[in-house]
Amino acid sequence: MADDLLSVDKLGKRFGGFVALDGIDLTVRAGERLGLIGPNGSGKSTLVNCLSGTLRNDSGTVRFDGNLLNGLAAHRRTRLGLARSFQLPKPFRSLTVVENLRVPLYYSVNARPGAPHLAEAAVGERCRELLRLVGLEAKADRQPQDLTQIEMRKLELARALAAEPKLLIADEAMAGLSNSEVDNILALLMRLGDRGIAVILIEHIMRAVISFSQRLVVLVAGRKIADGDPHAVVRDPEVVRAYLGE
C-alpha cells in the first residue's frame, strides 16, 4: 500500500544454520499503534535490530517512508525518522540526563538534510520539552547512574523521541516495572500516538499490549503466525498454543 509508513517484505535473517527470521511481512501505517509479541527467542529483537540497522538482513526488503533501507547504516535510518529504544537502557553514562538528549538533537535533527537547523537556545528548549513530556525535569542535570529503573526507561524513550521519529520501536520498555509504573509508561506511549508518531510496542505484559495496540502481530520461531485485531489474535488457537498457553 502506498500510504504505509513501514513496509517489510519477506525479511530473512540467519545466524549460521539457525534461521532467526523467516520471510517476515509487516506493515505499519503512519500514527498506528502496533503490538509485537512472541515467546523468548522468537526473533522479536532480531527483527528490531534488522529494522533499525544494527543488524543486516540477509534477504527481503525494508521500506520506510518512501526509502529503501537495505544496507543503510543505523544512524541514517534514525535521521529518516525510524528511532528505537533498547530493552536494557543504554544511557550515555558520562553525560548528564539533559546532555543525553542533546546527542540525537545535534546528530539526528540537525543533521537532517533540508530541515531547519536548531540553534543552541532551541536545542535547550527542546530538551526541556522532552524532559517535561517524560517527567524528568527534576533530574535534568543528574548523571544516569543516579536514576531509578523507571527513570532510566523514561530517559531511553526521551532520547529516542529527541530524534523526532515518525516511527518509534519500543523494545520491552516496561519489563521489570511495577503495575503503576507500567501504566505510567503506557500513558506516555499513548500520548505519542496522539502526536502522530507510529509505535511498535514489543512487550510481554499482555495487559499493556492489549490496551495499547490497535493491531497485534505474533512471532513464533522466526515466523509471523498472526496479524490483526488484538482481541481476535489472542483468541486464535495457534497463538494460544504457541505463546499464551492453554
Binding site: S52, A74, H75, F92, R93, L95, V103, Y106, V109
Partner: peptide
C-alpha cells in the same frame, strides 16, 4: 559530544544518529 556518546555506548550513539 559525538565522541563522548561513542565512548559511553557505541550502539546507542549510532541509533541516536551519530555517524
Amino acid at each position: 559530544f559525538g565522541l563522548a556518546a561513542i565512548r559511553d555506548d557505541e550502539q546507542a550513539a549510532e541509533v541516536s544518529g551519530v555517524p
